[in-house]
């Protein structure tokens, strides 16, 4: 984003802090990127809808406290979305993600039947992206500190500098996290491919030691 666009965005954010209508413009500008990032991270339309709803509600409620720091507004939204996803995945790990629990947490799945039908239709479309699902599962299997760097790089198409801004990390750190994360991802994907080819019971053996691990 160039300096002029940043300045325009700053003015819009300041306006949105006073005028609710302006928040609608910020929403329009950022919805697509945030929604698709969350969707690609979760692979599930309704889950993404819940997380994105919560992301924008948190942003709306916290907008009064938002202080412009010369970085795109979207970086802040990505950060909120990442926090919301972390909460979601944490709940998923302890097996407590039920609709009721999500209601208690403030999640409100869209009840309108048209919206539900729309979500189902998109879910079918997403389920056809088999290659993407394999990559997403491999990213999910990475240690947590690599996940967001790799996901922002490939699911949001962010460059190293932008990832640094979103995660609040120096570029050098992002670079090395990405490098190591990719190495882990390569191993995971190779293992997954190996399993798919030779069966679930086969053991993964690093390249160079022989295909069957002897």
């Amino acid at each position: 984003m160039d300096v002029r666009s940043l300045e325009q965005e700053k003015q819009l954010v300041e306006r949105a802090q006073r005028d609710p209508e302006a928040f609608g413009l910020l929403y329009e500008q950022n919805y697509d990127a945030i929604f698709n990032y969350v969707l690609r991270r979760t692979g599930h339309v309704e889950t993404a809808q819940d997380i994105v709803s919560e992301t924008f509600f948190v942003a709306l409620r916290s907008l009064g406290k938002f202080k412009w720091q010369g970085v795109p507004f979207s970086a802040w939204l990505y950060r909120i979305a990442i926090n919301e996803m972390a909460g979601y995945f944490r709940r998923a790990r302890v097996g407590t993600v039920s609709l009721e629990a999500m209601h208690e947490e403030g999640f409100e799945p869209p009840s309108d039947s048209d919206v539900e039908r729309e979500a189902l239709a998109w879910q079918e479309e997403i389920d056809r992206h088999l290659e993407y699902h394999a990559v997403r599962q491999a990213v999910d299997a990475l240690p947590e500190h690599y996940q967001e760097v790799v996901a922002l790089r490939f699911f949001a198409g962010k460059q190293i500098a932008d990832i640094g801004v979103v995660l609040g990390k120096p570029q050098g750190t992002v670079k090395s996290l990405l490098h190591r994360g990719l190495e882990k991802l390569r191993q995971t994907l190779t293992q997954a491919r190996y399993r798919a080819t030779f069966g679930e019971t086969s053991t993964y053996v690093e390249k160079g030691r022989g295909a069957h691990g002897q």
Partner: peptide, 16 residues
Amino acid sequence: VPLPHVDAPLFKAQLK
């Protein structure tokens, strides 16, 4: 890898 891109206009309008 082709990534899914969803444009759910009804949900978008409802959330807005």
